[in-house]
Nucleic acid binder design. Structure first.
Lengths: 238, 238
DNA sequence: ATTTTATGACTGACCAGTCAGTCATAGCTG
DNA sequence: CAGCTATGACTGACTGGTCAGTCATAAAAT
């Protein structure tokens, strides 16, 4: 009895051997603007940190926070286990920083979108494109899923994400819908009262991709477009 | 260093002492139809099993599969740890049976809903009520969230759930929308092509309740009603 | 008394986090 | 510039604690 226990390994565990050391990549002096400069210690350190974060995203996202092993993270990053602790205080700090630092670049761009006088349809189409290109189509999708699945166990993280992403996005969307509604571009005030609704299919796509894509792939782009048709009442039959 | 590690305990861990033994409840001969009959072994066994399942739902849902401790499940169920192994082969089997047995009663009712000639709006309102009353308003909500969060690590479970719940529900909804569309009750065919869309706000409500309810409660009933207005284009302003 | 069921102390595996030792690099010296 | 030393980034074997699963014993049922 007592077989492994670690649910559904996937990938890394078995015959994996330490990813081709970052050291190799580091040694290559390929710095764009200063071609001749050797990688300094600071450069290498930063590269290692990045490698650890990328590896952590993979492992946490494949196994969940509790079941992910830091040794696997180290292995995947091509560093020793101890190195992780030179960059992060502990497992939880690594997790929190992973979420935080990978999301921060996006926080700025959330409200930076010009709410110009474009028709609501055009604005939403841009958001759909943005979502598909910059989130759904990248490893950021895994990040969002991590927040959704681990959030309940990390209240600080959920709160951070709420205050910095969700709340702002909802406020921005609400304003957008309010003005569109005032201009008579919406059939009713449902979206003004619950701007959340516009994002529901996006969340669903992300969840679906993790759960059912294996045996029932979902065309997220088509789904999102259909959703726009649905809530904005485009062409269509009948 | 090396402090506890178990992220965000909540509830049970500290000074908890074994829930008032089920044995006590079991001993009370309160059987409805056979008032005099002592609780038989089979009855007691079944009660214990139920208690374990209920406790497991609480623990798994609060901590996640990997971090939940079977000793806590036993404590909460008011039984010894060994007793769990009289009813379930191992931790994973307990988890899978939890999901499976608590969902099976619902599987039947999914397709049993009369797709009679009612207007689509009335049918959907019933579904919304059903969802709010039988899922969102009960501990089944935790079950659904568990599937969403642990599903990726338990492919069998995800597949079971897909084949027995999701696929059927989508098929039934699709048929419903197709006939409504044929009768001219829908503006376009978005819902016919992606019946998924009708469920997205329900999924979102469940996720939200686990993540953000603490500091930004969401009125799920109002959200669902607004969603119906939105996709069916009811009264409203403008 | 015998059989069935329940229990919780125990075991072994596992893993987060540590730290003494290694070694590449920065910087100094002649 | 070549050689040498000091530095601290890096490593992985190790420790301590945790927990799934077992099993000898106790309790209950018949």
């Amino acid at each position: 009895m007592a077989k492994a226990m670690r649910a559904n390994p996937e990938g890394p565990a078995p015959g994996r051997r330490r990813a081709r050391s970052v050291a190799a990549a580091v040694r290559a002096p390929a710095r764009k603007s200063q071609p001749a400069a050797r990688a300094s210690r600071a450069d290498k350190s930063a590269l290692r940190r990045e490698a650890i974060l990328a590896a952590a995203l993979e492992e946490f996202s494949a196994r969940g926070f509790a079941a992910a092993r830091l040794e696997d993270v180290a292995l995947r990053a091509g560093v020793g286990k101890g190195t992780i602790y030179l960059h992060f205080h502990d497992k939880e700090a690594l997790f929190q920083e992973l979420i935080t630092t990978m999301l921060v670049p996006f926080i700025a761009s959330i409200e930076a979108v010009p709410p110009s006088g474009l028709p609501i349809r055009a604005v939403l189409e841009r958001f759909v494109d943005l979502f598909l290109r910059e989130i759904y189509g990248t490893e950021r999708r895994k990040l969002i899923r991590l927040i959704m699945t681990e959030g309940p166990r990390f209240p600080q993280l959920a709160e951070f994400h709420y205050r910095n992403v969700v709340k702002r996005a909802i406020a921005a969307m609400g304003a957008l819908f309010a003005s569109a509604h005032a201009r008579g571009e919406l059939r009713n005030d449902a979206l003004v009262r619950f701007p959340h609704l516009v994002a529901a299919p996006a969340m669903m796509s992300i969840l679906w991709s993790g759960l059912f894509d294996r045996f029932a792939p979902l065309d997220a782009a088509a789904l999102m477009r259909a959703h726009l048709d649905l809530i904005l009442g485009s062409g269509g039959a009948s």
